[in-house]
Design a protein around this nucleic acid. Structure first.
Lengths: 220, 220
DNA sequence: GCCTTGATGGTCACTTAGTGACATTCTGTC
DNA sequence: GACAGAATGTCACTAAGTGACCATCAAGGC
């Protein structure tokens, strides 16, 4: 197994665990995509990643949830970018600069993993078992948006109106991501989505519309 | 078992099956609520409804999906009302008159079932197994809204913008329903939600906002 | 009345997801 | 090197589902 190089006692174990989960998830997702979810057994995943079946169940509560980390990777960039949104710039501008930065300077997620994530989202459309994983990721986005929008509107995060805006925003983000994934996987001309500025504008416009215009503008 | 009284060959079987599924679902939901999902076995559900376990699996593909019909009952009224929306009246007015009609004249769903549905939605918050059932119901609403909004905007139902509006609208409806359920189950003062006009206004306003104002108005 | 037919439910054997208990190994600390 | 504890392997076990086959029952033709 890879070198651990922990600094303080116990804290690093968290990262180690996350890396292992991701590795398992990668193999599971590959198998799910290649031969379907039901045709993939826990034993197969275990063998592919080189662990015992029992250990798989120690890291994941169910077979389908093995896909979660890979799926979550797909939204983790967007979430972290949204979280860092300073309200003195418009949503379009912030997304464009930050997504661009992530794309070229420090890509936190492997390109192959990104493709795998899209494939899982695509599979979630027909495999009800995988749907949960995808919706968990969307739910995470929604919670994050709750905090952000609450901050924008200067209301508590549990406020009904805040939750409505967050749900609507997360929903349109979900639809756009599903659409991008479908287009990319279809092998069609995806240049429309390699332009970071265009994609940023699309996301920002969707969020602006879905929240009735209260989220997206820069504050003076 | 109940009398069959079929008229034509095979058509009635559909309804019979639906009734049986609902009956199983009712018992399953009751047990899920009383003792939790994991603590409820398939055998227990079978015994409660008076069938063999094998027959339960013939009607439901999984334990959790036993909750689906009851959960679906909660949205089926709203869906059918939305489907019947004539665009010459505003969404508020249509919802108020139709929901009122359903409430007093011909309630298609038992009050007890309605409460059970709320309980399942509540359970879905903590039991990931049940979440799928609830999200399936929301997904159904979203698909229905796709058709309605496509009609409003005179665009194809698969159009990206239509899907975004539908997703946003379905999301806010989900949040409002979760909120109503939580308030009712908390035993708090729920008079706010027994007033059909107020509830209709709330739904309509949420949808109007989430779709950027393009859905909700009457057309001239 | 009797037999066919088709749909539904029961019985039993079987696979597989997932857990509990305990032994083993691996990792970092002194 | 001895030690503590966290991670993993092994094995036995429960429970969710499935497949194959048989039993029952209502409807209709003769």
């Amino acid at each position: 197994m890879a070198t651990t190089q922990r600094r303080d006692g116990g804290g690093m174990s968290e990262r180690r665990r996350a890396r292992l989960r991701l590795e398992i998830s990668r193999e599971a997702a590959r198998l799910f995509w290649e031969q379907g979810v039901t045709a993939t057994s826990g034993d197969q995943i275990a063998e592919a990643v080189g662990l015992s079946t029992r250990t798989i169940w120690r890291h994941f509560r169910s077979k389908e949830s093995c896909a979660e980390p890979i799926v979550m990777q797909g939204v983790v960039t967007l979430i972290s970018v949204l979280r860092g949104w300073p309200r003195r710039s418009s949503l379009e501008d912030h997304l464009a600069t930050e997504l661009g930065r992530f794309r070229h300077e420090e890509p936190p997620v492997d390109r192959a993993d990104e493709m795998l994530g899209m494939k899982m989202i695509r599979l979630a459309d027909t495999e009800p078992a995988l749907r949960t994983a995808w919706l968990m990721a969307c739910d995470q986005t929604e919670r994050e948006l709750c905090a952000i929008i609450a901050d924008c509107l200067e209301r508590p995060a549990g406020d009904l109106e805040v939750r409505q805006h967050a749900a609507a925003a997360a929903a349109v983000v979900r639809v756009v991501e599903e659409h991008i994934g479908a287009v990319v996987l279809a092998g069609a001309d995806a240049t429309e989505f390699t332009d970071v500025v265009a994609v940023s504008r699309r996301f920002a416009h969707a969020i602006r519309t879905a929240t009735g215009g209260v989220v997206g503008d820069a504050v003076a």
